[in-house]
Computed example of a mutant assay.
Amino acid sequence: MLKVSKNPNYTGEVCELFSKDAAQATRAFHQQIEGYTPTPLVSLPNLAKQLGVKAILVKDESKRFGLNAFKVLGGSYALGRVLAEHLNMDISEIDLKTVASKLEKPLVFTTATAGNHGTGVAWAAREMAQKAVVYMPAGSPQASVDRIRGLGAECIVTDVNYDDTVRLANQTAEENGWMLVQDTAWEGYEQIPTWISQGYMTMADEAVEQAEAMEEGLPTHVLLQAGVGAMAGGVLGFLADRLGADNFNAIIGEPAAADCIYRSGLAGEMVNVTGSLSSIMAGLACGEPNPVTWPILRDCSHSFMSVEDKVAATGMRILGNPLKGDEAVISGESGAITMGMLYLLMTTEEGRAHAEMMGLGEDSVVMLFSTEGDTNPARYRRIVWEGEQAL
């Protein structure tokens, strides 16, 4: 159920692309968007006591811009940077509500997505009065398709997996002269994925600011989920610069069906995973690491984990059904994986051995990022109400 590897390649080296200064610039952009407010950092003291740690702090991204997920942070910042470059303006001069008036005609942005990233791009394109075309891999839930179309974007479901859908979106963008806004990178396509990962730093900057104001204090352990590693790398890069890489342990978790970061961690170099990549964690079902953020994960992660779907399902049930006195957090499959990981690390014989290696114990302040809410409501109910994917 749990595969764990301590990172043999840790150096603690920080990356200037994901510094605290860069995070301030991305947050300043997001702060000028109508409806911006920091999402809650929820403390779960009773669960912390039960699991044997000092504190558990959960960043609840279901409250982000009314979109039920964090991904809009990356998509909106990337679109802002693209438009700023197109108009030869500074990003600080980009106003989502007025930028369209500076263009002769709307631009067309396209992307491939498992759901949340495409929602963010569609929302940002709508806010900026631009157009969006979103591609989704085979088996994508209709709820995600409907949500993206409801934001005014065209949404096309393919008959291939996520990584092949990315290639299709790229090909279509080149053929039509559209702007690809993809949250993974490859040789020759690195600038926009970098901006997307930088956009995610707003979430981490808020979390550190909030933790500093709480009696629980700054994290000693941060559990991050990874698909291609765009969010995990961006957040970890910021935290390593802001807190000092040696002052906390970062544990990176993925679904077993698409554990490219786990395998890359073992190998010390990027390793791709192929096949259907089928997982309830659709947002993490990616087989090819992002080369922009992989070096950060290699240099600053303490451990890597590969876990079965039922681990994420357990995290969903724990967060949605809290101990008396703790606050409920509605977390989707990709959002709850880290809570499931923490629970198994602290409550099972196998897990406790790994927890000791990670330094998890009674003095630990653990920070988690619940990156989405119930973005697939029907499956959320099957898991949380009906017990699907039980341990």
Rank of each mutant, 00 (worst) to 15 (best):
I148V: 15
L151A: 08
G152D: 10
I156G: 01
I156M: 01
V157A: 04
V157S: 04
V157C: 03
T158F: 00
V160R: 10
V160A: 02
D164T: 01
V166S: 03
V166A: 08
L168M: 15
A169G: 09
N170K: 13
Q171A: 14
E175L: 14
N176T: 11
G177P: 05
M179Y: 11
V181E: 11
T184P: 00
E187F: 03
E190W: 00
E190L: 06
Q191E: 15
Q191F: 01
Q191P: 00
I192P: 02
I192E: 07
T194K: 08
T194F: 02
I196D: 03
Q198P: 02
Q198A: 03
G199I: 03
G199T: 01
Y200K: 09
M201F: 06
T202K: 12
M203N: 11
M203I: 14
A204K: 08
A204L: 12
A204W: 06
A204N: 08
D205Q: 15
V208M: 12
Q210E: 12
A211Q: 05
E212P: 00
A213T: 11
M214T: 02
M214V: 00
E215S: 15
E216S: 11
G217L: 07
G217C: 10
L218R: 04
L218S: 03
T220K: 01
T220D: 11
L223Q: 04
L223D: 01
L223K: 02
L223I: 13
L224K: 05
Q225I: 11
G227P: 02
V228W: 00
A230V: 15
A230T: 15
M231L: 15
M231H: 05
G233V: 11
G234F: 09
G234M: 09
V235K: 00
G237P: 04
G237A: 10
F238R: 13
L239V: 09
A240C: 08
R242Q: 13
R242D: 01
R242E: 12
L243H: 09
G244R: 05
A245Q: 05
N247V: 04
F248G: 07
F248E: 11
N249K: 15
I251W: 10
I251K: 05
I252M: 11
G253E: 11
G253D: 05
A256V: 10
A257N: 13
A257H: 03
A258F: 02
D259Y: 00
C260K: 02
C260R: 01
C260W: 07
I261P: 03
Y262H: 02
Y262I: 05
R263L: 12
R263Q: 15
R263E: 14
S264V: 01
G265Q: 07
L266I: 14
G268M: 11
M270N: 00
V273Y: 08
V273F: 06
S276H: 12
L277T: 07
S278I: 13
S278W: 09
S278R: 13
S278K: 14
I280H: 02
M281C: 12
